[in-house]
């Protein structure tokens, strides 16, 4: 860690005003402190935004407004979230450990960086994300955890957040505040696919701060939703595959379906193609499988992760079949 200054922002305006080159916003620190310590990130100043007011409240439209400094644990345990957005509670609780969830903020969770082993090995491995143009050692290396969708020659890393998978499924909107004012971006558009510039991971501009997340009012498929995480041990491990799913039926036909996948791409993957294919159909195992296969038609497995395609198919099918069964 290079030496840095630390200051606690008094409010959002103060935080944004303090932004400058070399300055990083600090949330719970669960990812950034680790990255700084491992010399993967450098900062000359940290502006601590984790103590800014954080509340969870209903929006005018009947949705939910969540301040960025709300801790993951608090969000997961919130009665409104548990009742109306169970998929979000489940996704949050699937992530990390209780200690980390007590620390991690909503804003920080959205910005957490990949767990690619080669990204983490600053001294010994090549990584285009760390050092554009250096090369990618993951492509032919250990890539069991890596992307099957939306990857590029430059980068095959995945986004590790569980929460974001649920947010993608919920059509969440991210609220930002920066030197040029405030704006909102749908979570689905917030993270970038690597393309030729894997170092660019989000649409966040220099000095911009995530101030909150807004959830639309819960639809029927949201109140009947589930998150299933598949991993190498039963708890406290990153996802190989995760699925956020929600289903609404009428007369035995799908009226609304939401599917998002984690562990498959550099961003939480909303499976719109599969959703479209399912709407209006009876949620049979075969129909669900056919739909998710359509989504995964573009999947490009690497040397070590071909199993993810079948795993994603089966997990999505199981999640939606269970939901359909519960609603039948």
């Amino acid at each position: 860690m290079m030496p840095f200054g630390y200051v606690r922002a008094t409010d959002r305006a103060d935080a944004v005003a303090r932004a400058g080159s070399g300055t990083r916003f600090l949330g719970g620190g669960t990812n950034l402190v680790d990255l700084l310590r491992q010399n993967m990130e450098q900062a000359s100043n940290l502006v601590d935004v984790s103590r800014l007011d954080g509340s969870i409240r209903e929006s005018h439209g009947g949705g939910l407004l969540i301040d960025a400094s709300v801790r993951n644990a608090a969000l997961a345990a919130h009665p409104l979230v548990r009742r109306r957005y169970p998929v979000l509670t489940r996704a949050l609780l699937a992530g990390a450990s209780a200690q980390i969830r007590n620390m991690a903020t909503v804003g920080g969770n959205i910005l957490q960086r990949t767990r690619c082993l080669y990204f983490y090995d600053v001294d010994g491995a090549r990584c285009n994300k760390r050092q554009p143009g250096a090369g990618c050692d993951a492509r032919e290396g250990f890539n069991r955890y890596h992307a099957i969708l939306g990857a590029s020659d430059q980068c095959v890393a995945t986004h590790p957040s569980d929460m974001c998978v649920a947010l993608a499924m919920l059509d969440a909107v991210i609220h930002l505040s920066g030197p040029d004012g405030e704006r909102s971006v749908p979570l689905a558009d917030f993270h970038a696919l690597p393309n030729a510039t894997p170092q660019v991971e989000t649409v966040l501009k220099q000095g911009e701060l995530i101030t909150g997340v807004e959830l639309p009012p819960p639809s029927d498929a949201v109140t009947h939703s589930e998150y299933r995480k598949v991993r190498d041990r039963s708890s406290y491990a990153f996802a190989l595959i995760s699925v956020a799913g929600g289903l609404a039926l009428a007369d035995g036909r799908v009226t609304e379906v939401r599917i998002a996948l984690g562990g498959v791409a550099a961003k939480p993957w909303r499976a719109r193609r599969a959703e479209t294919a399912l709407v209006g159909r009876a949620p049979s195992r075969d129909a669900i499988l056919a739909a998710i296969r359509e989504e995964l038609v573009d999947a490009r497995p690497l040397s070590g992760n071909a199993f993810k395609i079948g795993l994603a198919e089966r997990t999505v099918t199981a999640v939606l079949t269970d939901l359909a069964g519960a609603r039948a």
């Binding site: 606690r8 600090l26 719970g28 620190g29 402190v33 644990a73 200690q99």
Partner: peptide
Amino acid sequence: GNRVLSCLTLAAQ
């Protein structure tokens, strides 16, 4: 009162 990881908490925090 909350359990946290002191290794990833800056003392200043």
